[in-house]
Amino acid sequence: MIDIFDNYILQREELLARIAQELQLDKTRLERMESAYNAVAELLKKDEDFFDGLIIEVYAQGSKRIGTTVRPINEEDFDLDVVLHIYDPYYNHTPEQIYNALVKALEKHAYYKSIMEKKKRCVRLNYKSDFHMDILPACMPNYFEKEMIKIPEKALRNWSSGNPKGFSGWFLGIANSVKEPMLRKYADVLLEAQIETEELPKELYLKTPLQRTVQLLKRYRDIYFQNRDYRVSSVVITTLTAQLYQGESSIFEAIDNIVSRIRSNYTDALNRGYKFKVLNPVNPEEDFTDSWTSQHYESFYNFVTDFYKKWQNLKDSFETSKEDYIELFGEGVYKKSLNEQFRMFSKSTNNPLAKSSGLIVGGTAYTNAKGNINTDTGLKNGAHHNFGGEY
């Protein structure tokens, strides 16, 4: 059996997966959000005014759809973006008409009326259970392109184009192109250590390196821009990451290579005298950076460079990278993930420091008269949940 503590690369990879797993929305919240937009769909389908006789679908877009959710920091609400997809050509309606129809249908219901907030081109429902849902009404461009949508512009006078289903299919196609992810290769061996421990979520070792890369980059984005302006959007991070992914089998290699490629492409654009652009891969006419000012560009490059510098310190050992893990992903998340890793694998390791640390973390350690840590005799040590990663 593989001893994870004798294999730094594998231990680092498993830890990164744990950190990303810890960062994402939990199953309960995901189910609550899914229930919320399904309830809205049922309400609209029963509407006897505008939606009567129309075929509609309400579905999530963005991180929920592609499996890259990240919990907000500082107790902020999670922004759930959903599409109200009306399977009718846009030229049968005006942008203002479909927007007002959505508002009117929701206002008929006392609860939705009480939590509804009108935005420029979407309707927001502010749920008390730590998330809000932005509903974007949209129509088809014609009778043939059923995945494409026409979206009301902010002034509700014109339409713009979108393709959230196409984008998610594009991203997941690239994510699933990886041949043999490192953690899937060792999954059976690693999962043997589950004996007498809590059951691991199945997706811990199953999510692709690209999905984990997006989660970890977005986490540092949230930390980096807590007190900075010109925040980089999730769609820019997600698009760039997928465009520059080349099938790397590990989370670490994917991040290391992708961030290097972003920096290289950015400086190459500057040296050649043209703007660095991030275009929608399923709708090239849409430029995700079209509103960027010089401050946005500077902020973006500083963010990527700062991440890159910290990331380099993760290449050697945990002894030299503890503070960088904390700065990249947050102290609580890092320590909890490391604690759980030690508790899980300490029973199957021959590394004395890792074994004793795992016993202390798990609260099953005794110290005998000779000062040796064991599981049977001596003074029982209290459970320690703040192991800082000195190993």
Rank of each mutant, 00 (worst) to 15 (best):
T375G: 00
I149K: 01
E298A: 11
V361M: 05
N176L: 07
Q11R: 14
N92Q: 11
F318Q: 06
L217P: 08
A39E: 12
A39V: 06
A383H: 00
A36G: 08
A39Y: 00
T239L: 07
G67A: 00
Q312H: 06
G173L: 04
V70M: 07
F387G: 01
T241Q: 06
D47H: 09
D290L: 07
E76W: 05
Y245L: 01
S129G: 01
E196F: 14
N142S: 12
K275P: 03
L216E: 03
H385G: 12
I149S: 02
Y366H: 08
Q215N: 05
I195W: 09
T68N: 08
L206A: 03
V278W: 12
T238R: 01
L30R: 11
A17L: 01
L125D: 02
W292E: 01
V103G: 01
A254T: 10
A193S: 13
G378F: 00
K309S: 11
C122N: 08
Y334H: 04
E57G: 04
E253M: 02
A110Y: 11
N351C: 07
R121P: 12
E22K: 15
K108S: 04
F252R: 07
L136Y: 04
L270V: 10
I55P: 09
R261V: 04
D306F: 08
T267L: 09
L54D: 01
S294N: 13
Q226I: 09
D81T: 03
A193I: 05
P152E: 00
H384W: 08
Q21D: 10
L210S: 10
M33H: 09
T349F: 12
N280G: 00
E76R: 14
L54I: 03
R124S: 13
E203V: 06
A365I: 01
E31L: 06
E319Q: 11
N351H: 12
A175R: 00
L172F: 13
F78L: 04
K119G: 10
P284H: 14
G166Y: 05
E180I: 09
A369T: 10
T305G: 13
I326K: 15
K322W: 01
Y297A: 00
Y325H: 15
Q295V: 03
R29Q: 13
E14H: 06
E327V: 00
S346R: 01
N265H: 15
S160N: 08
K113N: 12
F342M: 15
S233T: 10
G162H: 02
G67L: 01
G378K: 02
G62N: 02
V40F: 03
C139A: 14
N100R: 15
G363M: 05
A175W: 02
N92M: 05
E31P: 05
N280P: 02
Y112P: 02
A365V: 02
H93K: 07
N350T: 11
V178R: 14
